[in-house]
Amino acid sequence: MNHHHTVAILVNDHPGVLQRVSALFNRRGFNIDSITVGPSEQPGMSRMIIVTLGDDRIMHQVINQVEKLIDVVNISILSEEPLVARELALIKVEAEPVKRPEIMTLAETFRATIADVSSDSLVVQIVGDTEKIEAMIELLTPYGILQICRTGVTAIARGRKPF
C-alpha cells in the first residue's frame, strides 16, 4: 500500500548535496512530493525534509539507498512517530478595495496574515499543515488567485526525540 512518508535527512552542507539526494530519488524511481532544505542546529550541516510516496518495501529501499550517500549523516522516517509538519504559502489574490475586508476576515479565520496590499490585490501568508493550506486556497479561489508560492513541508518530531 502506498502512503505518504515524511523523511528527515541530515546532510553535510556541501555543494551538490541536494543534487545527489534528488538524483538518487530520480534514478531509483522514488517519488518526491516536496523537498525543503535549510541549516540545522549543527554547524556545517543542513536538514532536508522530503515527502515521498511509497509502500513499505520502497521506503526501506529509500532509507538504505540514501543512507549510502557519503554526505548523508543520518536519515529517519518522521511520519512513523507523532510529528509537527508545516508549510508556508503566499497566495496573491485579486482584491478590489470593496472585496478586501471579506478576504481579510477569511484569512483571520485561518490565522493567516496579509503580507502585502496593493490597489487591486492582496498577498495572504498562511502557515499550516498541507490540508489547511489547501482549504485556504479553495476558499480564496472564487476571488481570483493570481499566484501561489508554497515552501513544501518541513517537519519535526514531537517531544524530545532528537531527530
Binding site: 518495501r57 526501506h60 529501499q61 538504505n64 539507498q65 543512507e67 549510502k68
Partner: peptide, 8 residues
Amino acid sequence: VDKAEIGK
C-alpha cells in the same frame, strides 16, 4: 556488506 541489497 550493503544493507540496501537486502530485499532489493
